[in-house]
Structures are given as structure tokens and as C-alpha cells.
Simulated assay, not measured.
Amino acid sequence: MHTLEKTKMSGLSLGAGKNMVTQLLVINLTVFIFLLFTKVIYQMENVGVPQFYTDIMSYLRVPSDPGLALRRPWTVLSAIFTHIEVLPVFTNMVWLWCFGSMLQHLAGYLRILPLYIFGGVVGNIFYVLGMQFIPGFQAIAGGAGAMGAAGSVMAIAIGATIIAPKYRIFPLLAGGGIPLWIITAIYLVLNIGSHFTSTGGVVFLPMLVGGGLAGWVYMSQWKKGNDLGGGFNRVSFKLSHMFHPAAEQKLPTELQEHAAATDDAEPPYKRVGKVPEQRLNEILDKINANGITSLTPEEKETLVRASNPEN
């Protein structure tokens, strides 16, 4: 059994300040509801759905015309938060919750947003390249564009599988649970298969390839100790805390570029009995930021002692 099975995966909580998966779900669903409401207004005012797509959606989704995409470069980012149909937003959010929760548990919440954006942007760039270089794709697309979180979700799915393919979910099932790589294989078959069977869906396959490649590169580098999203996280923290009190603008330890593994100013914890609450909080914060895989053997032993009521 994989070592990580022994720890409980954090739940999907709207009150969790560092649950980045929840925040992404809220953002995507909020944008979806706003766009759907706007579309209804266009219909009620007899302006028409085609005009809605011309006025709004054409500036949010990635154009199938590479020349137009170059004139609207922001769309490679805006498109990954844009959904207008119920089925795509539902399936994308379900898979985002599934793989995002596992990745957040394994590698920490700091990996979620950078990988979501990186995978989505790379996926959309691959979509534009496919429109440019793959014969027949322009005709199949028919002037439509790409939108949705499919590339981002693919990046997160591949990223989670790269770092822990044998990680098991539902460990109480016979055989010790279902390995993550099997869940990913099912996701790939369903996702890619749906694009082959739907009308015009084949043009979005380069987006999935780009997202998957981005997830593989990102998390492979993270396994080697290279956090490609470290700079993004530090800039995001500074921007989001720009108007906070000075004491709150200091980068937390997990965001510092060369964070020390231990603090010499703190006394070492060698107690064998009950674990001090401060030490336990430090370990839990480390798991939340960098995942269970970041713990040292001593920290894992401390968690075991803390979970033993007889200590």
C-alpha cells in the first residue's frame, strides 16, 4: 500500500482559506452564471444569441483564426475560466475537483493555481497552432473558438499522476483501493473519446495534448526540486496583500525563495510523548503548502505520535 494512503485527504470546504481547488471552482462557476445570465438578458431583450457571442464571447474565447488570436492574446488566459454550456462546465468542474483535490493533498495548494493557468495557456496555444498547421481544422471549426478548463484539468490530472501514480483512493475497497493511474486512464478514455465522437470535437485534441504536456513538465520539474510556479506565487501574494498591514505583507515561509528547512531559533522537538501543539501546527501548515510528500521522516513520525491517543 502506498504510504500516502494512511493520511486523510482534505475535504472540499468553502471555509478553507488555502483550498485553492475550492477557489477555482467558485471562480469558474461564478463566471459561468454571470455569462449565462447575460445570455438570457440578450434573449429577453430580443437582441439575439448571435449578438451575445459577437459582443462578449468573441473576446473571451480563443479564436480559431490564428491571426485574430494574435490580435487578442488575452484570450489564451480568459478562455480557461469561460464556460457557457452546462455539460462542459459540469464535467470540467467534477474532474477538477477529483484530480485537483488529490494534487493539493500530495503536493500542496501552492501547485494548483500556477499549474491550472500554465496548463490552460499552453493548451490554448496548442489549439491555435493546430488551427494553423493541421489541414482541415479551420473548416471543421467553422469560425468558432475554444473555451473552457479542459486543458487546465488535463494538466492537473497528468501532474498528479506523474508524482504519485500508485496513490490509492477509496483504500477500504477490496485490494486496497483504486490506483490513481487507473482513474487517469478512465479520464483520458472518456475525455478523448468524447472529442472524437462529438461534431467538430477533434479540433480540441491539440489543446488536451498541450495541457497534458504542460502538466508533465511542471510536476516533473517539481519532483526535481524546481518549482516553476514559485515566482508566480510570490508575485500573487504581494499583489493580493498590497493594501494589507505591513506585518501581513511579509512572505510566509513556504513562499520564500530559499526557505530554510529548520529554524535554528526554535528549540528542537525531541519529546517522545504528547506532541506540542505548535509543532503539530507547523507540520500541518507544511502539508497544506507543499503536500504530504514534503515531510521528513521525523515529521511523519511526529504525526503518528500525535494521532496516537495513548501518548
Rank of each mutant, 00 (worst) to 15 (best):
H2P: 15
E5T: 13
K6S: 10
K8P: 03
K8Y: 07
K8L: 10
S10I: 09
L12V: 13
S13G: 04
L14D: 05
G15K: 10
V21A: 00
L24K: 01
V26G: 00
V26D: 03
L29F: 14
V31H: 04
L35F: 15
T38Q: 13
K39S: 11
Y42P: 10
Q43R: 11
M44K: 15
M44I: 15
N46E: 14
V47P: 00
V49D: 13
P50C: 04
Y53F: 15
D55A: 08
M57S: 14
S58G: 02
R61D: 09
P63K: 02
P63A: 01
D65S: 08
G67T: 07
G67A: 01
P73I: 03
V76S: 03
T82S: 09
H83Q: 11
I84R: 01
E85T: 14
V89G: 04
V89W: 05
S101E: 07
S101M: 15
M102E: 03
H105L: 01
A107M: 06
L110S: 07
L113A: 11
L115T: 06
Y116P: 05
G120K: 07
V122H: 00
N124D: 08
I125N: 03
F126P: 07
F126R: 09
V128T: 13
L129F: 06
Q132M: 11
I140C: 08
A141G: 03
G142F: 08
A146K: 04
G148L: 14
A149M: 14
A149L: 11
S152E: 10
V153R: 10
V153N: 11
I156G: 01
A160W: 07
T161C: 12
I162V: 15
P165A: 00
K166D: 15
R168Y: 09
F170A: 11
L173T: 09
G175H: 00
G176M: 09
G176E: 08
G177Y: 04
P179I: 08
T184N: 12
Y187L: 06
L188R: 10
V189L: 15
N191Q: 13
T197S: 08
S198Y: 11
T199Q: 12
G200R: 05
V203Y: 01
M207A: 12
L208A: 05
V209N: 02
G210Q: 06
G212A: 09
A214I: 07
A214C: 05
G215M: 08
W222D: 15
K223E: 13
G229C: 10
G231C: 07
F232M: 14
V235E: 13
S236P: 06
L239G: 03
S240C: 04
Q249R: 15
E254L: 10
L255C: 10
L255Y: 09
Q256A: 05
Q256G: 03
A259I: 08
T262Q: 08
D264Y: 06
D264G: 08
E266W: 06
V272S: 09
G273L: 02
G273A: 03
G273D: 11
V275G: 03
E277Q: 14
R279A: 14
L284A: 09
A289D: 03
G291E: 01
T293I: 11
S294L: 00
L295E: 02
E298Q: 14
E298A: 14
T302H: 00
T302F: 01
L303Y: 04
S307V: 00
N308S: 05
E310C: 02
N311V: 02
